[in-house]
């Protein structure tokens, strides 16, 4: 199969993830969309690694996974504590930063 198709898939997944981050309000969904974008990137990296015939992309993909796992730990913890204090997982509720 032509490896370029994997890139199309990665771009599609990234776009789905990005629009999810922008549109959805539920923090968990937003969070999952971010994960989706990261995995889209992973897919693209692995594909490029295959296309160019070296391992750099795969190594970076491993890094990304590790970072994503760490992010899940921290991010979920924030969401849980936010939910506890506000009884809501909507990202729009947390708009204290505006002037």
């Amino acid at each position: 199969m032509n490896p370029v198709n994997y890139l199309y898939l990665a771009a599609l997944l990234f776009a789905i993830g990005a629009s999810g981050v922008l549109i959805r309000r539920n923090a968990i969904v937003v969070f999952m969309c971010v994960e989706l974008m990261l995995n889209a990137c992973n897919l693209a990296l692995v594909t490029f690694s295959r296309m160019h015939g070296n391992l750099d992309g795969q190594i970076v993909a491993f890094f990304t996974m590790v970072v994503a796992a760490a992010e899940v730990v921290v991010g979920l913890a924030i969401i849980v504590s936010l939910f506890r204090s506000r009884h809501s997982a909507s990202v729009d509720d947390a708009s204290l930063m505006k002037l």
């Binding site: 981050v21 922008l22 990202v91 204290l96 505006k98 002037l99």
Partner: peptide
């Protein structure tokens, strides 16, 4: 210009994208 800073994470994300 200040009004652009509305506190919604999504808005900031849009400008980032």
């Amino acid at each position: 210009m200040r009004k652009l800073q509305n506190g919604y994470a999504r808005t900031y994300a849009v400008s980032m994208f």
